[in-house]
Amino acid sequence: MTKAPEAGPREVTMRVWRGEDRASGAFADHRVAVDPGMVILDVLFRVQATSAPDLAVRWNCKAGKCGSCSAEVNGRPRLMCMTRLSSLPLDQPITVAPMATFPLVRDLVTDVSFNYEKAKTIPAFRPAPKDADGTRRMYQEEVERVQEFHKCIECFLCQDVCHVIRDHEENKEAFAGPRFFVRLAALEMHPLDTNDRIELARAKHGLGYCNITKCCTEVCPEDIHITDNAIIPLKERVVTEFYDPLVWAKRRLLGR
């Protein structure tokens, strides 16, 4: 059975951010023809081809796996290559803006190096000694839990949407952001890792700044349950170490 072509207008208005800084830049409207099955990135290519050849857009795989084409479509952080035109109301202009949390380079391209600097502050995996037979073993149920975190494609949409740094630039120094809580959780919950990063998560990466409003989980294109599976379990581990009076009493009475 042949699938009917997607219904909808043949032309849309793309309202795209243009400029090299947020103070002097502005949105520019482009009226472009569209075809069924297009995603936002396709439409921007058409804008480049027809009316704005100098429009700066970062992209790479066009398959939702490289994490390059992150932007804000109608005010919501999305991968442009995975946002189908048919999922948006086409009778109004479609707004495409750069990620608000990061410094603007030009048009839709932002400087995400903040994230790479944060990544450097997380101690690497340090495996336990090998078993007597010279191997290291992990069991399936242990692999599955950390595997979810390894799906992260580093699109930084979670970092973009997190209000702790999106609305409060001054917190960038003290707060690593959800992507790096995912990274910390992946290492902390790894059955073979021997590094302890709990104090680091609390003191240096600012886990306490997160007020679990779950926006990071809402925007994750890999459907990682960032808040429930990474951040809250890390918070609970921090509570055990630093805030639980019962654990404290037990340690005082019985030793660690």
């Binding site: 804000e72 919501r76 209000h163 409060h168 306490g208 007020n211 409003t213 926006c215």
Partner: peptide
């Protein structure tokens, strides 16, 4: 803080659950 994702916080300063009373 925030009312919804990408809707700006109502307050200009934010310390989350790091200090009294929210700690």
């Amino acid at each position: 803080a925030p009312a919804a994702c990408t809707v700006p916080d109502a307050r200009s300063k934010y310390g989350g659950e790091t200090a009294f009373p929210l700690v």
